[in-house]
């Protein structure tokens, strides 16, 4: 399945958000997610199904002013 992750098209085997994160190397990372502009809390990633063309944002703490 092709989805847009942080602005880059990625092919994923899984269709569930939590599994996609594992697949893309985010396992164990402190990250927060949004799908198609909507916040998806960590508690519901496991039950969040993605579909072709979804836009996924994976954000982490970063320097800020």
């Amino acid at each position: 399945m092709r989805i847009l992750v942080n602005g880059t098209w990625r092919e994923t085997l899984s269709a569930e958000l939590s599994a996609v994160l594992e697949e893309l190397g985010y396992g164990g990372s402190v990250v927060t997610t949004a799908v198609n502009g909507e916040f998806v809390a960590a508690a519901v990633r496991r039950g969040t199904r993605l579909t072709e063309g979804d836009r996924v944002e994976v954000l982490a703490p970063m320097q800020g002013g």
Binding site: G25, Y26, S29, V30, V31, V58, L59
Partner: peptide
């Protein structure tokens, strides 16, 4: 201190190190 959120790369994981420092 102020902090922010930015896109994280699954391979580089730059945000994880920053968060440890803070």
């Amino acid at each position: 201190v102020t902090v922010s959120l930015r896109r994280e790369s699954g391979s580089e994981r730059a945000g994880q190190g920053f968060w440890s420092i803070i």
